[in-house]
Design a protein around this nucleic acid. Structure first.
Lengths: 147, 147
DNA sequence: TATTGTTATACTCTATAACTATA
DNA sequence: TATAGTTATAGAGTATAACAATA
């Protein structure tokens, strides 16, 4: 069986459908925790790296320092993070998770695992492995196509 | 081989990686055409449905009427659409693609096909079919998990 | 009365540019 | 002189609420 252009665009359309669904799902899930995607991304960085300067956050998030000021303002205002003095550099600010922030991250980890189970637990091992491998292929192609 | 929770979260992480990549890619591609994702979504609706009232656009995009006013303002200002009188209902506005808008949509269709080729043309038929089928599974699971 | 789209207002995320304090 | 973060300003996308014109 030859592949037609239709088969190829169908694969892309299905992929995009999943992309849109995941976006919506993420946004709704986070909204229930009082978070947006950019704010959750920042929290996630703190969760994995420990306290960070705003400069480091700016680099990691690939947004301007000004933008980080705004995100941290929001997260501090809603109790997820605190600003503290940098021990040696008095220009810099260290942003740390509060207990509430850490608790929220733990909840996100849990619901991440829960989602993984709901999506993949019933999938036969071989099928799952083949899916993951195909995903890796597509991801690599997309990366190439862009650089 | 038993699946571990690690296998499941790895599958989810790979999926999310792809979601993020696609989002970035889409955004960059559209930016080159002078468009954002929400504006492109509106154009796409006009492309597939013909001229629509703002009310119909509001329903289809699932945003407020006020938001549609803003999106149409932007798209009209950059020459992608025009506002015209509704033939029978003098309250309503019909939004139509300009020639520039139609041309842009055609270009989007082309680059959509091009991307489909780059991502999937080299994939063996059987592997592609299995990937699409797994995507459909995951999409269905995600839909269930939410309702 | 109900509907269409607008004005008024506000919040989040994003950017650039100018500035302060510190290194 | 360079760096960290802020204030000032701006624009896009989102929302609610009040309102005008029309059905």
């Amino acid at each position: 069986m030859m592949k037609s252009i239709h088969d190829l665009t169908e694969a892309l359309d299905r992929t995009l459908e999943l992309v849109v669904l995941f976006n919506d799902d993420m946004q709704q899930e986070l909204a229930r925790l009082g978070l947006s995607v950019p704010r959750a991304h920042l929290l996630w960085l703190l969760h994995h790296n420990g306290p960070m300067t705003q400069r480091a956050l700016s680099d990691a998030l690939d947004v301007t320092p000004r933008n980080v000021t705004g995100l941290v303002d929001g997260l501090a205002g809603t109790g997820f993070v605190t600003r503290e003095q940098h021990p040696t550099d008095r220009r810099a600010t260290l942003v740390s998770l509060t207990e509430q922030g850490a608790t929220t991250l733990a909840a996100m980890d849990e619901s991440h695992k829960e989602l993984a189970r709901r999506l993949f637990a019933d999938m036969p091992s071989a099928r799952l492995a083949s899916f993951v491998s195909a995903l890796a292929d597509v991801t690599a192609r997309l990366r190439e196509a862009r650089s």
